[in-house]
Design a protein around this nucleic acid. Structure first.
Length: 754
RNA sequence: GGUCAAUUAGCUCAGUUGGUUAGAGCGCACGAUUCACAUUCGUGAGGUCGCUGGUUCAAGUCCAGCAUUGACCACCA
């Protein structure tokens, strides 16, 4: 073999690291990523747009992100080459609770906590921390080869985004879809915030079931420590055993002194369970709270005995100050001494609500919060979203998960959007506190940095209002305190305190497709909304996709995307879930270092199916690595043939063009119909087993012309480019140097005709 | 208790609207190779497509039931 001149293609192996950075730079400099560089021809293909699910601003990417980038970038590159005006809009998320949780962990290591800082200081500390780390995710996406429009990059706390999100809240409020009410919320006493129903993880466990002597009854409970908050006893209305007690007042021998309760009848009581008698603790149990709402006239007000610190309060007498678990043991011990404990069932299994973030037990606690009503009769957000699903305006690709989404929408409860953390968008609400000083609970840092809390009434005897405001950490106004929804502090003589809660992160990300396009370049919204595909993992279907549908419809009257492509979770090569404790986590960056971005992308996408988990491991990476090498060597062969002018007199093979056209047609339709796994698989096989095994061999035997061989190569480079952008572009550059192709960059080369 | 999904070669998985001898990667056996590529090439072994019925000229694909696994939801005092 004689070498005409030195060129990297003479290496028999493809080495991704020698090329990837340069190629990415070339793409960026060419402006190919920008939606503005493409002119939408009035042809057959509509504008194409994907809003990237914004990863957490300060976390490194995991392999699931790599899956997302691989799928989205493949679609984007395909549609761009096919001549659509194409936008892939990237961004990052402030990830309220996640970020504050991580940050507070850091503080703890320094022996500090959030209570050492006022709101503004804490917020800027977290902001600084996020700033320091926020380039990580972006640079990693670039290494993956993401051809996103970085000029349109958006962060969820960008000023115009924040303004937009607050305006949405105002609009919802004007439309009567926001209300404030005291309800039981899912509260994590460790994270110090409430959550929506979605963020609660239920765990099956054994919980002792205590049978207590309770006045004239025996009753079963798992939570004897809440008895200080009992406000009634309930039985089933048809239960003959207890019917004659209904409406009566009974006397219960308490721990210190006896107390009286009314017996009520409610359908929720299961006569078969326990003794058929239930103590009602409305402040600490969702069912009991519902009973209380139905029987308000027959029962006293809420009695909260567990505080937001997870400890019993003064109503618990001698047990005040004890954490819940400890208190339970002590209460049981005292009851046993007094002979009030009948028996204990240690085999009882139940489900306990835990925090998705820190795994601590979630306490249902009464808190006054802002809610969005999702099922209001004449203006139902959920109903509208359901209609677009049924009408097919939004299609869900993901193994039956459309039904899960519908089920959620049909049963959705009002959305609690208040979070008691600082890292987020503050809720634009002001409390008018004059005359309500005793109903406003404030925690703040004095000038000397001492954490102080109490009602405003108490605090104002020692401090000025300005001093309180300057050091404020939290304001908790009771349900009776009047409030104003407003971006600015209301005018007028009254004394106002700003709400300290922030929005649930999903409230802002739920507006993402709308807010990114509306705050972007002038006509982005008109051109690209509704977006074409929303691509994300199925585990945030309800958290995020559902909320985007609710709010997208509300804000624009249209569902925010035509297709939802739900990729599966990435598992290890044995199909096991990846976790740090198992030590089977694959770091995408390590795979890129070892094999290159193309290999990682291809091995994730090939033969993957929406909604189905994907398992990958070393054998898959090697297989994809071998494919890059195969492409490399096929290209070398073709170029060597041409340079050495060999095979020039070969005759054209008539079946070749037919078959190639069929390959192009098939791959094109697969990608167009979002069958990426199948497209990649077919591409792999037709390239390797047809083009390399058959066509190249035919050429060697003289029955396929060099022109056809070159056409085959360039066609396959085009078809492979969405899946393996780097190597295909490297080869394209080699062909271009030899004047074998006309366009400067493959990324901007028109798609193959079929 | 309800819903959804999965069950195809030793392993991990494809198989779009039902249509000839069911595919890939890895693994296995045997062989080849100065000729693009040993990150290669060729040949081969290996599957009653979970089970039982049904619809159809035709079923891995559609229907019903069952089994196993996983996920989601509901109840739980």
């Amino acid at each position: 073999m004689h070498v005409v001149r030195y060129n990297p293609l003479m290496d028999t192996r493809y080495t991704p690291h020698s090329y990837e950075n340069d190629i990415y730079k070339k793409w960026e400099e060419s402006g190919a990523f920008s939606a503005d560089s493409q002119v939408q021809t009035m042809g057959e293909h509509q504008p194409f747009c994907i809003i990237m699910p914004p990863p957490n601003a300060n976390d490194p990417l995991h392999i699931g992100h790599a899956m997302g980038v691989a799928v989205q970038d493949a679609l984007i590159r395909f549609h761009r080459m096919r001549g659509s005006k194409t936008l892939w809009l990237p961004g990052t998320d402030h990830a309220g609770i996640e970020t504050q949780y991580v940050f507070e962990k850091k503080l703890r290591k320094q022996g500090k906590s959030r209570f050492n800082f006022d709101r503004d200081t804490l917020y800027s500390m977290i902001a600084e921390y996020v700033d320091e780390n926020s380039q990580v995710a972006i640079s990693q996406m670039k290494r993956l080869g993401a051809s996103a429009d970085w000029d349109r990059f958006t962060f969820t706390l960008d000023e115009d985004v924040v303004t937009f999100v607050k305006d949405t809240f105002l609009k919802l409020h004007d439309d009567g879809l926001v209300y404030r009410d005291e309800k039981l919320v899912n509260y994590c006493t460790k994270c110090g915030t409430s959550y929506s129903e979605l963020e609660v993880v239920y765990k099956e466990q054994q919980t002792p079931l205590y049978y207590l002597q309770y006045g004239p009854f025996e009753l079963a409970t798992t939570r004897p420590e809440t008895k200080f908050g009992d406000t009634a006893v309930a039985v089933h209305p048809d239960d003959r055993r207890y019917q004659h007690y209904v409406g009566n007042t009974i006397t219960v021998e308490g721990i210190s002194s006896p107390f009286e309760l009314t017996v009520i009848a409610d359908e929720f009581v299961d006569p078969e369970f326990g003794t058929g008698v239930v103590k009602i603790t409305p402040a600490h149990d969702h069912n009991d709270f519902a009973v209380w709402q139905r029987h308000k006239d027959a029962m006293p007000a809420l009695k909260q005995v567990i505080g937001f610190d997870g400890k019993l309060n003064e109503l618990a007498g001698e047990f005040a100050g004890l954490p819940v678990v400890e208190a339970r043991q002590k209460v049981v011990a005292v009851l046993r001494e007094k002979g009030l404990l009948v028996k204990v069932d240690d085999t009882y299994q139940n489900r306990v609500a835990t925090c998705y973030r820190c795994s601590r037990v979630i306490e249902p606690l009464p808190l006054t919060q802002f809610f969005i009503s999702v099922n209001k009769k004449d203006n139902s957000l959920a109903h509208t979203a359901l209609k677009s699903l049924s009408a097919g305006q939004t299609k869900i690709l993901g193994a039956g998960r459309e039904k899960i989404l519908k089920h959620w929408l049909e049963n959705l409860q009002d959305w609690n959007i208040s979070r008691q953390i600082v890292w987020g968008i503050s809720i634009p609400v002001w409390y008018q506190v004059d005359g309500y000083e005793s109903s406003v609970h404030v925690g703040f840092l004095t000038k000397d940095g001492v954490y102080t809390r109490g009602t405003l009434e108490e605090l104002l005897t020692q401090f000025s209002i300005d001093e309180v405001v300057a050091g404020v950490q939290s304001v908790q106004a009771e349900n009776t305190v009047p409030y104003v929804v407003s971006l600015e502090k209301p005018n007028g003589g009254g004394m106002y305190l700003a709400e300290t809660d922030t929005f649930d992160t999903w409230f802002s990300s739920g507006q993402w497709p709308v807010v990114t396009l509306k705050t972007g370049k002038s006509d982005d919204f008109e051109t690209f909304y509704p977006t074409s595909v929303m691509e994300t993992a199925y585990d945030i279907l309800t958290f995020w996709v559902m909320r985007m549908m609710l709010l997208g419809e509300y804000l624009t009257g249209r569902s925010p995307f035509s297709n939802v492509y739900l990729h599966g979770l990435v598992r290890d090569e044995k199909g096991k879930k990846m976790s740090k404790s198992k030590g089977n986590v694959i770091n995408p960056l390590e795979i890129i270092d070892k094999y290159g971005a193309d290999v990682l992308r291809m091995s994730l996408v090939i033969r993957s199916t929406p909604g189905q988990d994907r398992s990958v491991g070393e054998p898959d990476f090697k297989a994809a690595r071998n494919l890059t090498n195969k492409l490399w060597n096929a290209a070398r062969f073709v170029m060597l043939q041409i340079e050495n002018n060999e095979g020039g007199d070969n005759t054209p093979h008539s079946e070749f063009d037919v078959k190639l056209t069929e390959v192009v047609r098939s791959i094109t339709s697969h990608i167009d119909e979002l069958r990426l796994g199948l497209a990649a698989d077919e591409l792999y096989n037709s390239f390797w087993h047809w083009y390399c095994d058959e066509c190249i061999e035919q050429h060697k035997k003289g029955s396929l012309s060099t022109d056809q061989l070159l056409t085959g190569l360039t066609t396959f480079l085009i078809l492979f480019h969405p899946f393996m952008p780097y190597i295909t572009e490297v080869i394209w550059q080699e062909l271009r140097e030899r004047s074998l192709v006309k366009t400067n960059l493959l990324i901007s080369t028109p798609w193959a005709n079929s």
